[in-house]
Design a protein around this nucleic acid. Structure first.
Lengths: 340, 340
DNA sequence: AACCGCATTACAAACGGTTGCATGACGGTG
DNA sequence: CACCGTCATGCAACCGTTTGTAATGCGGTT
């Protein structure tokens, strides 16, 4: 943003024509003499002119920038989603501005405020695990700022969403565990305020029900964060009078911690206890034992969210919020027994 | 960017005072009556006013946005660097705009152009592996746009840089291998156009030299990408008349591929061949065997780059480009033998 | 010669802020 | 009473574009 940057006015001065003509020439308008146009383009090239998007944005009231809020960028799942978003939006001329909430509600709010202040054309958001009020999102809706929620969505809001079929993913995982002969299947989940936690738990419960296995309250534990609590949770399960024969973890990081505790206690996986994760983080493939997990199509989720967003901005009148559900895939590895 | 957003003019109208007074009140200027100020702030609150940063940026010629270009966001190392950058810059009021080059020179150029067009206050760049001309960066320097290169830097340019002591890291790794008794140590590296490849190779060579081990050309192979070529490279090494007793890989992904080939060929690690990686990706800790690797302080690198950048923008006159070198740490795991 | 239509170009007003300078009111001073 | 400094506020220009509308020139008609 230095004075070294040429402006449209500089070009006009040099060529001795008006600013508006230069502007029209640059954007290839119809009613400008081919020769003038040529001269302008050459001069632009020569003076190394770069259009000032800030001025453009102000004038046309559109920044061609989209704001993204994720809990943490360094989590593989989210950076993959972002990749997907970027792949799609960049081809439509959008830049992206990224913020991390670091799972803090306050930071999430200020992130959004900042993005709105920067007049992004819309927002793609995955809410923090701390978020349980939604006025900040409702305000966006009032202001008619296009928004798409992904992965960590808010059920009660009538906005566009892209999610994974968490219920089905969990169901498939637990159903598989049962087919391998497991009967006492435990569940380590997240706070039920998060829709995904809820869905995964329901999938777990439904799989039990479908297979006529009674639900045991003692086999269900919940964590608010996924660094320390899962360790406590696992120990709690292992201290039960009767051991579980499988543990379904709500995501891979939890599964990894669970495996560590099992290793410490010298419990054989999968012979004594099977473990299943969720997400298919790259690690889960390489860890010993490799983890059976429910793969989420992160990149595709990003693309889908981006697609919905673009539809929405290009067609604000006719667009109706909708929810898109992506399917998961159960990836069978070595932390579970084989089907007999 | 809808008409639903209140402007400073709307506030002025409502309060029946001038635009400039509102502006001054909002930014807490000195010479505005406390009461007026209070009224303005209240009205702003009430009307849900959000300053338009686009207009601000245009006027003050500063966007408080910084552009980042990385090869790929979904690589843990880079997303960690970005985390570090964001942590530091957000506290200084900067937003970040992120682009991925996907290791393509052309995309890298267009990324940079786009960011310049958006008038970011500066750029933090890690160049693509394809990049071997630097006019696009030189142009930035001519335009006096602050820039900091990190990790994948360009030696020949006189700009600020943050790197890891690749030479030392490689040296420590190879030296350790030698201390564990290895004598025929192979190296799988990247294209020497990348400064980091170069430095790591030199570290390898110097470690051999220091320990009076002759360099064998046949033990050094180079890859242009890290998905398929490392597999070929490893096989090539294993087909030598005399097997190596260690392989030093230029990064963890290569090490993982190497381990796979070794597993296929049923060669015991580390008993027959030791393997060392570089970067300390999270996977390398969990894979079997866990990989001895040279840890790079990614997050700190981001912070350092951000710090240098801020210094530069806040103090453009006195700032001199400099290079900051961060130290690595050798993390010993199970892919190498113990020191006797 | 006056007029018209057409292609091309210039003018000027926005967009939403910031900021130097002028203005006005007011109390104090000589 | 004229003058002055201070405080608070308003005016207007500006940032770099876009765009509706007016102006210009010109060849062709009547």
């Amino acid at each position: 943003m230095k004075n070294t940057q040429a402006t449209i006015r500089d070009l006009a001065l040099k060529l001795n024509i008006s600013i508006s003509t230069v502007s029209r020439a640059l954007r290839g308008a119809q009613d400008v003499n081919p020769e003038t146009k040529k001269a302008v383009l050459e001069m632009a090239q020569q003076m190394n002119y770069e259009p000032n998007k800030v001025a453009q944005s102000l004038r046309i009231k559109k920044t061609n920038t989209i704001g993204i809020v994720v809990p943490e960028i360094a989590i593989h799942f989210f950076s993959s989603v972002i990749s997907g978003i970027q792949h799609y939006t960049s081809r439509h001329g959008y830049s992206i501005m990224i913020c991390q909430s670091l799972e803090s509600f306050e930071i999430e709010k200020s992130n959004i405020q900042m993005l709105v202040s920067n007049r992004v054309d819309g927002l793609l958001i995955s809410v923090s695990s701390e978020t349980r009020e939604y006025q900040h999102l409702e305000r966006l809706m009032e202001k008619k700022i296009p928004m798409v929620l992904f992965d960590r969505v808010v059920d009660s809001l009538d906005v566009s969403k892209v999610v994974v079929d968490d219920h089905d993913g969990a169901f498939k995982a637990v159903d598989y565990l049962i087919k391998t002969g497991c009967k006492r299947i435990a569940y380590i989940g997240g706070a039920l305020t998060l829709s995904i936690s809820n869905q995964r738990m329901k999938g777990y419960l439904d799989a039990l029900k479908t297979n006529n296995i009674p639900v045991q309250e003692e086999l269900m534990v919940f964590c608010n964060e996924f660094h320390d609590e899962p360790i406590v949770a696992t120990r709690q399960l292992l201290d039960l009078p009767e051991l579980p024969d499988a543990i379904f973890c709500m995501n891979d990081p939890v599964a990894i911690l669970t495996l560590q505790v099992l290793k410490q206690r010298k419990i054989a996986v999968p012979d004594e206890i099977s473990v299943v994760g969720f997400t298919n983080e790259p690690v889960s493939r390489y860890i010993e034992p490799s983890i059976t997990t429910v793969a989420q199509p992160a990149y595709q989720m990003g693309e889908a969210a981006a697609r919905m967003f673009i539809e929405q901005v290009e067609n604000p009148a006719s667009f109706k919020p909708r929810m898109e559900t992506l399917q998961t895939e159960l990836i069978i590895r070595n932390s579970t027994r084989r089907i007999a």
